[in-house]
């Protein structure tokens, strides 16, 4: 009987090993087959002249350019907002926290890491409602608010990678630094932080990926389908991920649908490239310390 169940288990394993890659490859292959031919200047700018569109002289109505610009600014703002607290938390957890602080702060960050992204979006939405009822009656959702909520979303990613990178600094380097008369803070800023920079940077790249792909947060915080280029920090904006969702549910004609495929392919490629970049950074970081030890 045991023998039989093991055979079933082994067969299942082999089945999954074939099934799962096939499933994913079919989904991705389908997307690429329909989306890859769409990639090109037309996809971005539609009928508008690329140069004029990039300079903002003409609006782009049937291209992904405004969405790309929106996503770009969203990601930049998010990283600007999240890097300082996120990486700071990671350094603190690894270097300075007492065991009790480690437990509490670690639990809080873990909890935040598992939080559904839509809750962050709801948080931003509530913030605006609160502002409207109190000090700013005409507060509205916009780019900055979305970036702030996304910053909360990617904060655990940054914290975890910074914490791991700092923990990977070898003990021998710590002893050598202490023996040279560095105080804890001096050693941290002049030696350990530069040594861990690559690992931390890998985390930043991962965070960029998370911020670029997320849709649920921005759904609540100011994304719209036809905003054009973002007008400012407080303005509405378009985003690649939202455009994909919007087109899938509201597309009018074949051309718009194809644009959706193009957008999905583009976002997929960007995400995979970011993941690859993060892996390269992380691997280089590990190699450096492993050859040294």
């Amino acid at each position: 009987m045991r023998r039989f169940s093991f055979l079933v288990f082994r067969a299942l394993c082999t089945l999954c090993a074939v099934l799962v890659p096939c499933l994913v490859l079919v989904l991705m292959g389908y997307l690429f087959r329909r989306g890859l031919p769409e990639l090109g200047l037309d996809l971005l700018f539609g009928r508008a002249d690329p140069l004029d569109a990039v300079l903002g002289r003409v609006p782009v109505w049937d291209g992904l350019w405004p969405a790309c610009v929106g996503t770009f600014w969203l990601v930049v703002l998010t990283v600007l907002l999240a890097v300082f607290p996120g990486v700071g938390c990671g350094i603190y957890l690894s270097e300075l926290a007492s065991p009790r602080q480690k437990r509490i702060l670690g639990a809080a960050v873990d909890m935040l890491a598992g939080m559904p992204s839509i809750v962050m979006g709801l948080f931003g939405f509530m913030l605006i409602l609160l502002l409207r009822r109190t000090v700013l009656p005409d507060a509205n959702t916009g780019l900055l608010l979305a970036a702030g909520c996304l910053a909360l979303l990617v904060l655990p990613v940054l914290t975890a990678s910074a914490r791991e990178a700092m923990a990977a600094v070898p003990d021998s380097l710590r002893l050598a630094a202490a023996a040279c008369g560095f105080s804890r803070a001096q050693a941290l800023f002049h030696l350990f932080l530069p040594a861990a920079a690559r690992g931390i940077l890998g985390g930043v790249v991962l965070a960029v990926g998370r911020a670029a792909e997320d849709t649920a947060v921005i759904l609540f915080t100011g994304v719209v389908a036809n905003a054009g280029l973002p007008s400012g920090l407080l303005g509405k904006f378009e985003a690649l991920s939202f455009d994909i969702y919007y087109i899938s549910s509201q597309y009018q004609d074949q051309q718009e649908l194809l644009r959706g495929f193009g957008a999905a392919t583009l976002l997929l490629v960007i995400s995979c490239l970011l993941l690859a970049a993060a892996r390269v950074l992380e691997r280089g970081f590990r190699k450096k310390w492993q050859t040294k030890a």
Binding site: S172, L175, A178, A179, C180, G181, K292
Partner: peptide
Amino acid sequence: LRRRVGMVFQTPQVFP
């Protein structure tokens, strides 16, 4: 104290 007492380790511990 550690500035006034120099130390060299068994394996060379150069900074990166």
